[in-house]
């Protein structure tokens, strides 16, 4: 792996749109070409080197490229957007749309990520060690499909409307979720180890999708119907995968925990599942 280091020069009030910070865009260029890649601040067209000190090596292919953003970048939007391979590590906070529409590779944010992180993600792994903003892994407005693949792991809590219109893939939240998690969900998996907020799974249709809540639910919609309390084997597969592949160690605590199964959202004739661990 060849490492390219980007050090933000300052945190600006006007956000910087830098979808070029991606192994997919950077690989195969010279360091000089990388420094001259365009970024936008408002309507002003600038270069990457105007906002970052750019050093290190550039790989031939995205899979061999690791990019480290070594500093605070809450004002930098679209980092890792549409990346398809390689690694991107943001050592502190990241701005909006981080990892949106990514299709592969691994993106790690050591701090928190702003709204729309992993929006319409299709593949790869997005790890946010702090909190994530609103609309994590969500569909952009007007779109009927949110996440269609990949995995998002959030170490802290997440804002509202996470996983809206989700179709496939997995979102794991170690902390709490704000209202409307899984709204319009139509497939995929959401596992919340903190407390899930109100309106969970509102208008979710199902299609094999489920929301597992291991730290309770603030309030369940009346349009979800209680079925049973049981310990389904399929959950063991997910929990073991979380522990073994994604280092979510706390998952193993729930291996044999009974889960209350609710089915809905009956308001839309849905067949999604909400599984709530017994306290």
């Amino acid at each position: 792996m060849k490492k390219l280091i980007l050090v933000p020069k300052e945190v600006t009030a006007i956000p910087v749109e830098a979808e070029v910070i991606s192994p997919t865009v950077i690989a195969g260029r010279t360091l000089d070409e990388v420094q001259r890649l365009n970024v936008y601040q408002g309507k002003v067209k600038l270069t990457l080197a105007d906002h970052f000190d750019v050093t290190g090596e550039v790989a031939e292919t995205p899979a061999e490229q690791i990019i480290v953003v070594d500093g605070d970048a809450p004002h930098v939007k679209y980092m890792g957007a549409a990346m398809d391979a390689g690694r991107l590590v943001v050592k502190r906070d990241a701005g909006m749309h981080t990892g949106s529409q990514m299709t592969g590779g691994e993106l790690t944010v050591k701090g928190s990520a702003a709204d729309w992180a992993g929006a319409e993600m299709k593949g790869g792994v997005l790890r946010i060690e702090g909190d994530a903003g609103h609309l994590l892994g969500a569909a952009y407005r007007g779109s009927s499909e949110g996440m269609t693949g990949g995995c998002i792991v959030v170490g802290g809590g997440v804002g509202s409307e996470a996983a809206s219109f989700m179709r496939r893939g997995m979102i794991v939240v170690k902390g709490d979720t704000a209202p409307f998690t899984g709204v319009h969900m139509n497939g995929g998996e959401i596992l919340v180890f903190g407390r899930a907020g109100k309106r969970l799974g509102a208008q979710a249709k199902g299609n094999g999708g489920f929301m597992a809540c291991f730290g309770g639910v603030e309030e369940l919609l009346p349009t979800y119907m209680y079925d049973t309390t049981y310990s389904p084997i399929f959950m063991r597969l997910y929990l073991r995968q979380l522990a073994e592949t994604l280092n979510v160690e706390e998952a193993l605590r729930y291996l044999d925990k009974p889960l209350k199964r609710y089915r809905g959202d009956l308001a839309v004739g849905g067949n999604a599942e909400i599984l709530i661990a017994e306290p």
């Binding site: 790869g124 990949g150 496939r168 995968q241």
Partner: peptide, 17 residues
């Protein structure tokens, strides 16, 4: 219920519940 695992990030597995 159709169960999908690993879509887009790990080896794809399909199960039925």
């Amino acid at each position: 219920v159709k169960m999908r695992m690993g879509d887009g990030w790990e080896a794809r597995q399909r199960f039925w519940r």
